[in-house]
């Protein structure tokens, strides 16, 4: 049974921020994560953000800005997202079921902060920045600093996630998004990997980005691997070394857990496959 003591549905952003300033309202967008949580929780006050016009996708010269209430269905069918942020296009198309994608939002995916949130590793590759609003003003936080751990973020009770800003890619790159699960659909990710590789005409990597979900306590980039790849010539051996480094990083950050004997070889395989796919070389 869900217990609510208040439900507000404002039309104006100012009003929403005023309601949030009391500090005891939780924003609700799609509700696909929140409603199951409400069923086993305390009485809550909800702020419905569906009428605030937060389902926009905008672009300017340097950024693509995505409203926090954009659904996964919207993002996985949008031409601009497909062309400019292909990892996000792919990730949002793999979230849950069609029914879930029609309701669940990218903002909710970020705020819920599950270690296996599908959109987050994709957004991390694009140096995503979050715009948070409150009555006190606006602040921007880098996504890679925002998630503190499983289901924990640095959002304050009076703040609303307004939008996500992604830098437009300056050079063309290849990319790969891999989602590992127990079945092919309606899947809670066991592990996700998202990578981009830009290379010059001599096959030397000019810019590599790689991020993973369910590898570390929070989805995160792997700068050590990016450093290893940059300015190197694309080769299967290089990617093997990168994959072994990823496994070392996982054990260093997350420790040896019950799942490690499974996750270690799987992570090595996924990193190799993702880097091969992103750089356009044969994985075998």
């Amino acid at each position: 049974m869900i217990a609510l003591s208040a439900y507000r549905q404002p039309d104006m952003l100012n009003e929403a921020l005023e309601i949030l300033s009391s500090g005891d309202f939780a924003p609700i967008a799609g509700g696909t994560d929140l409603i199951p949580q409400l069923r086993c929780g305390q009485q809550r006050k909800l702020l419905d953000i569906s009428r605030l016009g937060l389902s926009f996708i905008k672009k300017d010269d340097n950024f693509i800005e995505i409203g926090a209430a954009c659904t996964h269905s919207r993002l996985s069918s949008d031409d601009l997202i497909k062309e400019k942020l292909p990892l996000l296009f792919r990730a949002t198309g793999l979230v849950g079921s069609w029914q879930i994608r029609n309701r669940g939002t990218v903002g909710g995916n970020i705020i819920n902060a599950s270690p296996c949130a599908d959109s987050v590793p994709a957004l991390l590759n694009y140096d995503a920045e979050l715009v948070l609003l409150s009555q006190k003003g606006r602040r921007a936080v880098k996504l890679n600093e925002f998630t503190l751990g499983p289901y924990k973020t640095q959002i304050k009770p009076d703040e609303l996630l307004y939008s996500i800003r992604c830098k437009k890619q300056s050079t063309p790159s290849g990319c790969s998004y891999l989602k590992l699960g127990r079945r092919q659909a309606v899947n809670i990710s066991r592990m996700t990997l998202a990578a981009t590789i830009a290379k010059d005409k001599n096959d030397v990597i000019t810019n590599a980005t790689i991020a993973g979900g369910s590898i570390f306590p929070a989805p995160s980039r792997m700068p050590e691997i990016e450093k290893m790849l940059n300015r190197q010539k694309v080769s299967y051996e290089l990617f093997e070394d990168a994959a072994n480094l990823a496994a070392d990083l996982m054990i260093k950050e997350s420790g040896v857990r019950w799942s490690t004997p499974y996750k270690k070889p799987v992570l090595i395989g996924l990193v190799q496959r993702a880097l091969c796919e992103a750089s356009g070389i044969n994985a075998s």
């Binding site: 509700g31 696909t32 409603i35 069609w98 029914q99 879930i100 309701r103």
Partner: peptide, 20 residues
């Protein structure tokens, strides 16, 4: 599953104010 505004959704994950 029901259809809301032409899209399939889970009726168990929508609160009544959201169908206004």
């Amino acid at each position: 599953t029901v259809i809301v505004d032409g899209q399939p959704v889970n009726a168990c994950l929508i609160l009544t104010p959201q169908i206004d």
